[in-house]
Design a protein around this nucleic acid. Structure first.
Ligand SMILES: [Mn+2]
Ligand SMILES: [Mn+2]
Ligand SMILES: [Zn+2]
Ligand SMILES: [Zn+2]
Lengths: 151, 151
DNA sequence: CAGCAAAAGATACTTGGTCTCATTAAGAGG
DNA sequence: CCTCTTAATGAGACCAAGTATCTTTTGCTG
């Protein structure tokens, strides 16, 4: 972990270039910062780390990266919208409500289930949005530990 | 359908009163309008139909009604947040991307599935958010019909 | 029906994001 | 390498949805 961060940033840029977008210095900066992020982040977070970039540029980059599938949006339990690096393709998130970490949930087995349920309502399924909230392994074991020590 | 609309509005008010909230005339107006809504709506929709109420009052009422479980939030595919009458308790929505109608999906069979998946990631499930997008029966049969006629 | 707390309304502010428009800078082609 | 076109940027106005603050009004309870 760490170190290959530039490689990741470059990968983001390449994805954009493949789609015909120019590799500009603001975009390089954004890619760099995103590559350094270890958690989901907001537009405001980026702005804090890139105070010299125009605000609109940040939003434009985010939108672009979401459109190209590099980033995905994450809906927090309180309704806040964050962004994070996407494992391309359809997936969901296990979001820890305690530490805020997020684990990707690949292989979306609910698709099948939804198809059935939808069909039984005469509904032609085309997509879905799912976020899962709870406590990650680390946080739930920390909880149990402190219960023991305070008891 | 139609007609028992006042009964519904009164029911909303009663729910609030049960929780110790006063029955004020702005709240009666909001309840009335909500009871008349046949689709999910935005705060702005309400405002359009209640131009005399203070904007803050509308938002305060909506928040209250969501908190008491009378309304639920609906996340549209484009990210827009709407509100609609809630069948109390946990449920999801089948949202038609064509006509905008919404069908409630009661009996959330994904809970079970999510529990398993979460557990296998060492994740202690506490909640989830799910919206399902597609085409409702009416819209998908209309589609097929027009295909036939234009062919 | 008096008095108090809750609620309303006006309005300022905040957050997250888009639009416009003048200026700058990629990068393709010569 | 230079030139030209066009995409992209930055500044800033604007917008939508919602919250905060503060004064006035109104429900309700005793
Ligand atoms: Mn993701
Ligand atoms: Mn609902
Ligand atoms: Zn955690
Ligand atoms: Zn439909």
């Amino acid at each position: 972990m760490r170190k290959r961060v530039n490689a990741l940033a470059e990968q983001l840029l390449e994805t954009l270039e493949e789609r015909g977008y120019r590799s500009t210095s603001p975009r390089r900066a954004v890619a760099q910062v995103i590559a350094n992020q270890d958690k989901h982040f907001t537009a405001e977070d980026l702005r804090g780390q890139l105070p010299l970039l125009g605000r609109a540029t940040i939003f434009r980059s985010l939108k672009l990266l979401v459109e190209t599938g590099v980033l995905c949006r994450v809906l927090l339990e309180d309704g806040d919208l964050h962004y994070q690096l996407s494992h391309r393709g359809h997936h969901h998130h296990l979001l820890c409500v305690e530490c805020g970490s997020s684990q990707d949930l690949l292989g979306c087995d609910i698709e099948e289930l939804l198809h059935q349920t939808s069909a039984s309502h005469g509904f032609e399924l085309s997509g879905h949005w799912l976020e899962v909230y709870g406590r990650c392994r680390a946080c739930s074991s920390a909880d149990k530990l402190s219960e023991l020590t305070t008891a």
